[in-house]
Computed example of a mutant assay.
Amino acid sequence: MRHLKTTTHPDIEGLDSTTIFNRNAARAIVLDGEDILLLYTERYHDYTIPGGGLDEGEEVIAGMVRELKEETGARNIRDIEPFGIYEEFRPWHKNDADVVHMISYCYTCKVDRKLGETAHEHHEVQNGMEPVWMNIHQAIAHNERTMAESPKKGMSIERETFLLNLIADELLK
């Protein structure tokens, strides 16, 4: 799978003398014309691509399908194709490491437009996460406004907005 981008949080000065926790994630890019299936999170006022961390020993595509079903209620997931890898290094605020190295494996796929029931985790419910079909250009503009105006902006919205722009440039031609 092709490498899309590597980002490093500005607080990380170097990786040589740090303890790194490796985390793999899978993300699902679901387009229907210029509409894309996203998650709106009220707490962060942003739109994100469905996906998340892989369970221990879980295959990447199986994890992508699981996350997509849980977060959006997607049905009839099909035509899965690799899109690319987004890699990031962030501070890790737990005792077992200084830095988390997260690799997001991104795949395109198709789903039925009508979504089923979600199975959100407690923190997702608390954060006000909801699946939505949205015009990709409107989602990009929204996230860019949020990045410019929000003091809560972090690396996640930067990753998501980068991916949304790349998707629009490459897949909507």
Rank of each mutant, 00 (worst) to 15 (best):
residue 47 Y to C: 01
residue 166 L to H: 14
residue 164 L to K: 04
residue 17 S to T: 15
residue 95 N to D: 15
residue 3 H to C: 03
residue 101 H to I: 02
residue 115 L to Y: 02
residue 57 G to H: 10
residue 168 A to R: 15
residue 57 G to N: 12
residue 90 R to Y: 03
residue 58 E to Q: 15
residue 42 E to C: 05
residue 49 I to F: 07
residue 12 I to V: 10
residue 76 N to T: 02
residue 107 Y to N: 08
residue 149 E to R: 08
residue 8 T to M: 13
residue 98 D to F: 01
residue 154 G to L: 03
residue 100 V to Q: 10
residue 141 A to V: 05
residue 74 A to E: 03
residue 123 H to V: 10
residue 167 I to S: 01
residue 132 V to R: 15
residue 127 N to M: 12
residue 9 H to A: 13
residue 10 P to A: 04
residue 80 I to P: 03
residue 79 D to H: 13
residue 153 K to D: 00
residue 46 D to R: 15
residue 57 G to Y: 08
residue 99 V to D: 02
residue 86 Y to I: 11
residue 100 V to D: 09
residue 20 I to C: 02
residue 25 A to H: 06
residue 8 T to H: 00
residue 83 F to P: 03
residue 41 T to N: 08
residue 104 S to T: 14
residue 82 P to A: 06
residue 1 M to E: 12
residue 62 A to V: 14
residue 50 P to C: 04
residue 88 E to A: 13
residue 130 E to L: 13
residue 162 F to H: 10
residue 47 Y to W: 10
residue 112 D to Y: 06
residue 57 G to P: 07
residue 11 D to C: 04
residue 102 M to C: 14
residue 76 N to Y: 03
residue 47 Y to M: 04
residue 130 E to D: 07
residue 172 L to S: 00
residue 133 W to P: 05
residue 166 L to E: 13
residue 15 L to A: 09
residue 85 I to F: 10
residue 32 D to F: 03
residue 26 A to E: 06
residue 38 L to C: 10
residue 94 K to Y: 13
residue 126 Q to E: 15
residue 158 E to R: 13
residue 119 A to F: 08
residue 134 M to F: 07
residue 39 L to Q: 11
residue 52 G to D: 02
residue 82 P to W: 04
residue 39 L to T: 05
residue 9 H to V: 04
residue 73 G to V: 02
residue 159 R to G: 07
residue 120 H to S: 02
residue 77 I to V: 15
residue 53 G to L: 14
residue 77 I to H: 03
residue 46 D to H: 12
residue 171 L to M: 14
residue 42 E to H: 11
residue 81 E to S: 12
residue 94 K to A: 15
residue 58 E to N: 09
residue 163 L to N: 02
residue 95 N to Y: 11
residue 91 P to R: 04
residue 66 R to D: 10
residue 138 Q to W: 00
residue 50 P to A: 05
residue 97 A to W: 01
residue 77 I to Q: 07
residue 156 S to Y: 00
residue 43 R to S: 12
residue 153 K to F: 05
residue 116 G to H: 05
residue 23 R to M: 15
residue 37 L to I: 01
residue 106 C to W: 06
residue 39 L to V: 08
residue 24 N to M: 11
residue 9 H to F: 06
residue 157 I to D: 01
residue 58 E to R: 10
residue 9 H to K: 05
residue 75 R to E: 13
residue 137 H to L: 09
residue 144 E to F: 07
residue 1 M to C: 12
residue 61 I to W: 07
residue 106 C to K: 10
residue 138 Q to L: 07
residue 156 S to R: 01
residue 155 M to H: 05
residue 30 V to P: 01
residue 112 D to M: 05
residue 153 K to Q: 11
residue 90 R to M: 10
residue 95 N to A: 14
residue 98 D to C: 02
residue 27 R to Y: 12
residue 172 L to W: 00
residue 136 I to G: 01
residue 112 D to T: 09
residue 74 A to M: 08
residue 105 Y to P: 07
residue 92 W to P: 01
residue 13 E to A: 10
residue 53 G to N: 14
residue 59 E to H: 11
residue 90 R to H: 07
residue 62 A to L: 14
residue 171 L to A: 01
residue 7 T to K: 06
residue 125 V to H: 09
residue 97 A to F: 02
residue 50 P to W: 03
residue 152 K to S: 08
residue 28 A to G: 11
residue 68 L to N: 02
residue 139 A to N: 04
residue 123 H to Q: 10
residue 32 D to G: 03
residue 87 E to G: 02
residue 147 M to D: 04
residue 152 K to T: 12
residue 117 E to M: 09
residue 93 H to T: 07
residue 61 I to K: 13
residue 23 R to L: 15
residue 111 V to W: 00
residue 171 L to W: 01
residue 117 E to I: 07
residue 83 F to Y: 14
